[in-house]
């Protein structure tokens, strides 16, 4: 059956990526990773996934191009405005009681969520006491996040979302338009550490009051999702907050009991006392 052959090829290709480059997609949710690999195969005009594997094993320059397919993430600023409104109205009042804060945007991709969070914290007067960690496994995505430049045609949607999230300022206060691009103010990343970090293979690196990891774990299988949630659990301070994507849930996780639902409709959880 060709279908089984393809499954064997996927397993071997993911194993090759891991052994050769230490990128570990072996426990990603299989249906999505398969779609992405088949897209990459046809984009690179390869007769088979085995041929794609041979190419990436022998040609390191193929790696970033393939990573672009495997980690592609499209987001928007203030995506799901209700989430940011809930942070603003229900979570930040708790965070305000801390003299200093650490916030982790896990799987930050090209930075849309990071800049949203930085603007939210600035509007609420918490920016100066906060250190943000923005992490991703894709170096190209991290570079894009650090640059903070987006096509101007995306700004209308960003602005609309920002308003719906209860924004207290105008989004245009934070960027300058330049040849069809919106360049976000570098002061927004003054307190940001950009770092290569893998939820699959790396460990806890700081104690956080808030972790936001949205639409990242939907790409993991259940075992890997358990590992990531376990990592968040260990990384969170007492009563720390965890936000996940609007259609994600900790309900099917091994660590479900370690969290309470703080804003259930926006998927914001709070770590219970140990």
């Amino acid at each position: 059956m060709p279908h089984q052959t393809e499954d064997i090829e996927i397993g071997l290709l993911l194993e090759a990526l891991y052994q050769r480059y230490h990128y570990d997609f072996r426990h990603y949710a299989r249906a999505s990773i398969k779609r992405r690999l088949l897209q990459a195969r046809s984009h690179f005009n390869m007769p088979s996934l085995t041929a794609l594997q041979e190419r990436v094993l022998h040609d390191p320059e193929m790696l970033p191009r393939l990573l672009g397919f495997l980690t592609v993430q499209v987001s928007e600023m203030f995506r799901d405005p209700g989430y940011f409104r809930a942070l603003r109205e229900q979570v930040l009042p708790h965070l305000r009681t801390y003299p200093s804060l650490k916030v982790w945007i896990a799987g930050c991709s090209a930075g849309e969520e990071l800049y949203s969070m930085a603007i939210l914290f600035r509007e609420e007067g918490l920016f100066d006491r906060t250190l943000f960690y923005a992490t991703d496994i894709n170096p190209d995505a991290l570079r894009a996040a650090e640059a903070g430049i987006y096509p101007l045609d995306r700004i209308r949607k960003f602005t609309e979302n920002h308003q719906k999230s209860g924004g207290r300022s105008s989004l245009s206060d934070y960027y300058t338009a330049d040849y069809g691009r919106a360049v976000f103010d570098k002061s927004l990343r003054a307190n940001v550490v950009f770092s290569d970090h893998s939820l699959v293979t790396d460990a806890v690196f700081a104690e956080m009051q808030l972790i936001s990891c949205r639409n990242v774990m939907i790409y993991f299988d259940r075992g890997l999702q358990d590992r990531a949630v376990g990592l968040f659990r260990e990384s969170l301070a007492r009563h720390g907050f965890l936000g996940v994507g609007s259609k994600e849930s900790l309900r099917f996780s091994r660590h479900a009991a370690a969290f309470s639902e703080f804003v259930p409709e926006e998927k914001i959880y709070r770590k219970r006392e140990a």
Partner: peptide, 8 residues
Amino acid sequence: DLALSSDE
């Protein structure tokens, strides 16, 4: 299992 994705 069901899976969701926010791919393009």
